[in-house]
Each structure stands twice: as structure tokens, then as C-alpha cells.
Design a protein around this nucleic acid. Structure first.
Lengths: 153, 153
DNA sequence: CAGTTTGTTCGGTTAATACTGAACGTGTAG
DNA sequence: CTACACGTTCAGTATTAACCGAACAAACTG
């Protein structure tokens, strides 16, 4: 039964890798997240490399990446030299920052275009506004979600 | 002054290409969208290739892509053999379908994992639930936005 | 019927980037 | 002091996918 659990965990970790890839994150980052969701406790650098069967170099770059994002945090173990990692509090909020920035950027692109050439044609202005509202609302949704997920859970 | 407008349009079109790329769409698809937002009217296949300085092959694949997505539609011109394209009604809703699907998929991955090994550890179950809720809520937000943008605008 | 235009499809090239192996610096243990 | 463990960095490799040119079928023109 332990073997089937192990298989299930591995499957989940792999799938989280693919999910992450779909969101534009490196696959290994997703696999790290997946493993950390399963195993709560702090995992050592080497343990990650071993369990995921991945080079230490990749663990280094991806833990730094997730750490910088705010999804995981590096913790020290008393008397241990190794680095340990665990999920940050409210880890998933930080996954929304990238999308929020992208939407703001997109909105700015549209607004800039509107300022430059809106005068000319009425239809153009209307279509630019619609597109601008789209990106704006999308950004707002992400921000609201982020607010929700920063409080609780 | 016409030259500056032309430059502004080109800049916007290029930037829309980059925005699209950030959203995981092919750059040319974004450029097509950008051009169509500026020029309202139906644009011919050849015109697109010409204005965007892009191979007809790319126009073919990307118009098909956007058409399939529902963002643009292929329209006929009386007595014309060429294909013309224009923005669909409520074009941007369809850009949300992909994200919605991805979130549902992600949620399913988490739910499946939860079903297989939730029994064992309490913390694991909690963390899986949190992640599941995250994807679920994200999907819901996309759906709500889609509903908003399918009505008006 | 020959020749042209239109859009699609396919094979190959190119560009971006995730990942690895190896070299390195630092700290620790024997 | 030598040997090893740990994490980072860099250069090279591999993989993915966007894009193009060319060959093609279909439809129209003279």
C-alpha cells in the first residue's frame, strides 16, 4: 500500500510540474511546490534533489526563484549547515503578482495607444477602450483574489 | 502627422504582440488582434500579411487559431474570392477560455491527489485543500469575468 | 486550356529557455 | 591539513514551438 501511495505522490508531483509549465513557470518549480504540499515539513536542499531526481543546480535556481517569488521560504535547522525549505504562509498569493503586473502592463500599452491616436476615428477609440477595460478588469480580479488569499487560508 | 500616426500604430501592434506572447499566445496572433483593434473594418488575408510583414503561412495558421478561439471571424465580401477578417462580437471573452480550462485541470489534479492519499496525514489534506481552493477560485473569477464580458462591451 | 490568385500544409530553420555537468568558493569534519 | 559537503554560477546541451519558404489543391480569369 505504501508503494501505491508513493506512486500517487509521484504522479501528483509530475502533474504539478505540468500545471506550473502551463502557467509559465519552470516545470521543476512546480514539482518542488507539489512535493512541499504533500510533505509539509521543511525539506532539505539535497532531499529535494534526490526526491525529484534533479540536478542540484536546478534545485538551486528554482528554490531561489520560488523564494524570491515568496512561495517558499528558506529556513535554518539548529546545528545543521544545510538549507531547508518550506511553504511560506499564504504561498499562493504570490503566484498572482506576475499576472497582475502583466495586466497592468497591457492596460498601459492600450492607454498609451489611445492617447496617441484616439482623436482620429471614433470606432478605433471605442475598440481601444473596450480592450483597455478588459485588461483593467482582469487585473482587478487578480488583485481581489490576492487580497482574499492573503488574509486567510 | 500621418507618419507619426503610422509609427504609433506600428508600435501598438508590436506591443500587442508582446502582450500576447506573455499570455502564452503566438506573437503574430497578438499583432493581428492589435491591427484589427485599430482598423475596425474587415481586413483581407493578403492585407494582413502585407501590413504585418509576415508570411502568408503565418497569417493562415494564426487567423485559423484566432478564428477557432472566437476572437475574430472570417467574413465574405460580395463578389470577392479573398477571405476577410474582423473582430468577433465580444472578442475578448474567448481569451478567458484557456485560463478557465487550465484552472479546472489544475483543480482536478489536486482533487485527484486528495482522494488518493488524504486519509494519511492531516496537514497534507489541509494543504491540498488550500491549493485546490486556490485553483477553484481562480477559475471562478475567470468565469465571472467571462460572463461580464459576454453581455455588454 | 494555360496561367494566376488564394489559402492550407509540410519540412526545416531559428530562437528562447529549461536543465545539466562541472568548476568554484566556503565552511566543516576527521 | 586533507577531504568532504553544501550551495551557487556558468557554459553547453536539449527541447519546444514559432515562423518561413515552398509545394500544393482549388477556384477563378483570360
Amino acid at each position: 500500500m505504501n508503494t501505491s501511495r508513493k506512486a500517487a505522490v509521484e504522479e501528483f508531483v509530475e502533474r504539478m510540474g505540468l500545471v506550473a509549465e502551463g502557467d509559465g513557470l519552470p516545470r521543476i518549480a512546480g514539482r518542488i511546490m507539489g512535493l512541499m504540499v504533500i510533505e509539509g515539513g521543511p525539506l532539505s536542499f539535497s532531499e529535494l534533489a534526490q526526491r525529484l531526481d534533479v540536478s542540484r543546480a536546478s534545485i538551486s535556481t528554482n528554490t531561489r526563484f520560488l523564494e524570491r517569488l515568496g512561495v517558499i521560504e528558506r529556513v535554518a535547522q539548529r546545528g545543521e549547515r544545510r538549507d531547508y525549505f518550506q511553504l511560506a504562509t499564504a504561498p499562493y498569493v504570490h503566484l498572482l503578482q506576475g499576472p497582475v503586473d502583466r495586466m497592468m502592463k497591457a492596460h498601459a500599452v492600450v492607454a498609451h495607444a489611445r492617447d496617441q491616436l484616439s482623436v482620429t476615428d471614433e470606432g478605433t477609440r471605442r475598440r481601444l477602450d473596450e480592450l483597455g477595460v478588459f485588461y483593467e478588469e482582469l487585473g482587478n480580479s487578480f488583485r481581489e483574489l490576492a487580497k482574499r488569499f492573503s488574509r486567510d487560508e
